[in-house]
């Protein structure tokens, strides 16, 4: 179907799960059915407030295929770029917000004989819609969640309805990643989403245990914050300041530059732009090792600069 873009949704519920986590229930403003979404899908919320605008991507945690509502969980980011604080502090039931149609860069693997799901903190959200589908298909899975002691209760409440194959680990030291990966049967696919260090630990342990790269799936929505720098657009000579709490993509968008983007998490490659001068600080999962080392390409949604300025082929 050719959807209207954006989708306009009304906030039906906004319920705190913890001091920093809030669950939002969104329903279609016009009552027409929403596009169905598969496990792993996210939507981009287009938020506006007092002259500022944010495009924030959130995984759908609602039951897959539901067309009457979408649910998301939003963590208030400490060094917030503003979007999550806006959601926590300003948005209230009844408010209207613009959404993209669901985008899925993290779907279950139809050919997997078993799904191993590993989440870290609120990074577990894209994995939360997997168990309902896997259970309906009678496909074997196990889910491991790593979290802080303070949030143990929150994640237990969120995940325990998914059955006995859910395990909560308090702190990274409490999970034996090499052991878990080594005892999986052949044909298992692992899906990990969480802090960078957790994802590196899982992908590293999988590689060490001889897992094929095609059986390892990861997704991150890590905040792209860091030291401020200047983006120079080679074709126009424009200089755009990228603040410390803002991604390069956001700075380009705020300056009215028509920059490509899709996943906003460094995974899909859509936002790739050529770098003519300066050294990129690569934080994506798309570029190959040689491409990173070459320094001629950058994913604007997550990557930053090691030099005070980056000259972009734009």
């Amino acid at each position: 179907m050719i959807h209207g873009d954006p989708i306009i949704a009304r906030i039906r519920e906004s319920r705190p799960l913890s001091p920093t986590l809030k669950r939002l229930v969104l329903e279609p403003a016009d009552g027409a059915p929403l596009p169905p979404a598969a496990p792993g899908a996210h939507v981009t919320l287009r938020l506006k407030s007092a002259g500022r605008a944010w495009n924030n991507a959130y995984s759908l945690v609602s039951e897959p295929g539901r067309r009457d509502r979408y649910e998301i969980i939003v963590r208030r980011v400490h060094a917030s770029r503003g979007g999550s604080a806006h959601i926590h502090d300003t948005l209230a039931p009844g408010d209207l917000i613009d959404l993209s149609a669901p985008i899925n860069l993290f779907p279950p693997a139809a050919s997997a004989r078993r799904h191993l799901l590993i989440g870290g903190g609120v990074g577990v959200t894209p994995l939360m819609s997997f168990p309902p589908l896997l259970r309906a298909l009678r496909a074997p899975f196990e889910l491991h969640q790593v979290c802080s002691a303070a949030e143990r209760g929150v994640f237990e409440a969120l995940l325990s309805p998914h059955g006995p194959d859910v395990h909560i680990h308090v702190g990274r030291g409490a999970i034996d990643l090499p052991g878990i990966l080594e005892r999986q049967p052949l044909g298992t696919h692992v899906f990990v989403c969480g802090p960078e260090a957790l994802m590196e630990a899982v992908t590293g342990a999988a590689a060490a245990a001889g897992w094929p790269a095609s059986s390892v799936h990861q997704e991150s929505f890590a905040a792209a914050s860091g030291a401020p720098f200047t983006a120079v657009l080679a074709r126009s000579g424009r200089r755009i300041a990228v603040a410390g709490n803002q991604s390069l993509l956001e700075a380009l968008e705020a300056a009215g530059v028509d920059a490509p983007s899709l996943c906003r998490g460094g995974a899909c490659g859509e936002c790739m732009i050529g770098v003519l001068d300066g050294a990129p600080d690569h934080r994506d999962h798309y570029l190959s090792g040689p491409e990173r080392a070459g320094g001629a390409l950058i994913m604007t949604c997550v990557s930053r600069a090691r030099t005070p300025a980056l000259v972009l082929d734009l």
């Binding site: 179907m1 050719i2 959807h3 873009d5 596009p35 979404a37 149609a101 669901p102 985008i103 899925n104 899709l262 899909c268 490659g269 859509e270």
Partner: peptide, 12 residues
């Protein structure tokens, strides 16, 4: 292929 892998729902 790169284009199609990123094909989005609602945007045929």
């Amino acid at each position: 292929l790169q284009y199609l892998l990123r094909l989005q729902l609602g945007h045929p």
